[in-house]
Amino acid sequence: MKEAAVSGGLSLARRRLLRLPRFNRSKLSASDLFVYGAAIAVAIIILCAIVPQWLAPYSPTAMQADQVLLHPSWAHPLGTDYFGRDVLSVVIYGSRDSLIIGFVSVLVGSITGGLIGALAGYAGGIIDTVLMRLVDVLMTIPGVLLALAIAAALGPSLTNVVLAVAAATVPGYARVMRGQIMSMKARPFITASRSIGATGPVIFWRHVLPNSLSPMFVMAAIGIGSSILTGAGLSFLGLGTIKEIPDWGALLSQGRGYLTVAWWICTFPGLAITLFVLSVNILGDRVRDRLDPKRSRG
């Protein structure tokens, strides 16, 4: 009996030891760590844009003649610029306009392009032909060039930059939405809805449109980064916002003349753009993996 009990205890202990490696499988993978890191980076930058006065150590407009072009130090972690302003404070305050350009332009472009694509795909016929030919004309112009032309025509301001960047993204959203709507119209449950007497508007708003939005969400999540890059490019060329507190693109433009003497003036705004765009792209890839049923089955 004692031997049986001992052997039973050993076998139980052995089984418990064999279960220990299973806890290792529950650890986060490398991709999960990247996603969580990207989410933290995006959250911090968004917090900088919402409440910059809580995070900035100095005023972004405070000019000190005796602290011009100081190297990064404990007092000024990112150094100072040619006006004696703290670069860290200017970068934190400049995140607001950069994020407004990225998020609002994606919102405006996705809604406008989505409505055009939905109308063209569901109506068909002459409406589809006319709308898609206009979209094809816009797609022949590179997005950056189209945004540059619109911003130059409207003049430098935050609203005009948002409209210019949004207009450059409209053709892509319209194409994606049209394809989704046309694919959804051919589904069996849409035919069944028609057979029981459902009207066209009811089918569109209750069945076709809600089931066609997933690719738009994915495209919008990934498009935020490219919109910020386009907005920064316009600001770099002098077509962005003209304010006392410049955005990241304007900071790059202002610091390029001092690159050999004060590399930190334009390096850290560039790193801020890189970090945010990279983080948004990582999160966009995760959103795509979650919303794409083909990838989730794979």
Rank of each mutant, 00 (worst) to 15 (best):
Asn160Gln: 09
Asn160Pro: 00
Val161Leu: 08
Val161Cys: 09
Val162Glu: 04
Leu163Trp: 07
Ala164Val: 01
Ala164His: 01
Val165Phe: 04
Ala166Asp: 04
Ala166Cys: 07
Ala168Lys: 05
Thr169Phe: 14
Thr169His: 15
Pro171Met: 03
Tyr173Val: 03
Ala174Arg: 02
Arg175His: 06
Arg175Ile: 03
Val176Cys: 00
Met177Pro: 02
Arg178Glu: 01
Gly179Phe: 00
Gly179Thr: 06
Ile181Tyr: 00
Ile181Trp: 03
Met182Gln: 14
Ser183His: 12
Met184Glu: 11
Lys185Ile: 10
Ala186Pro: 08
Arg187Trp: 09
Arg187His: 15
Arg187Val: 15
Pro188Thr: 14
Pro188Leu: 14
Pro188Gln: 15
Phe189Trp: 06
Ile190Gly: 02
Ile190Ser: 02
Ala192Asp: 10
Ala192Cys: 09
Ser193Glu: 13
Arg194Leu: 10
Arg194Thr: 09
Ser195Met: 13
Ser195Cys: 13
Ile196Ser: 12
Gly197Gln: 08
Ala198Lys: 12
Thr199Val: 11
Thr199Gln: 13
Pro201Met: 09
Val202Glu: 13
Phe204Asn: 00
Trp205Thr: 14
Arg206Thr: 10
His207Met: 11
Val208Gln: 05
Leu209Tyr: 08
Leu209Glu: 06
Leu209Asn: 03
Leu209Thr: 02
Leu209Arg: 03
Asn211Pro: 00
Asn211Lys: 02
Asn211Glu: 00
Ser212Tyr: 04
Ser212His: 05
Leu213Glu: 07
Leu213Pro: 03
Ser214Val: 14
Ser214Glu: 12
Pro215Gly: 03
Phe217Tyr: 13
Phe217Met: 15
Val218Met: 04
Val218Arg: 02
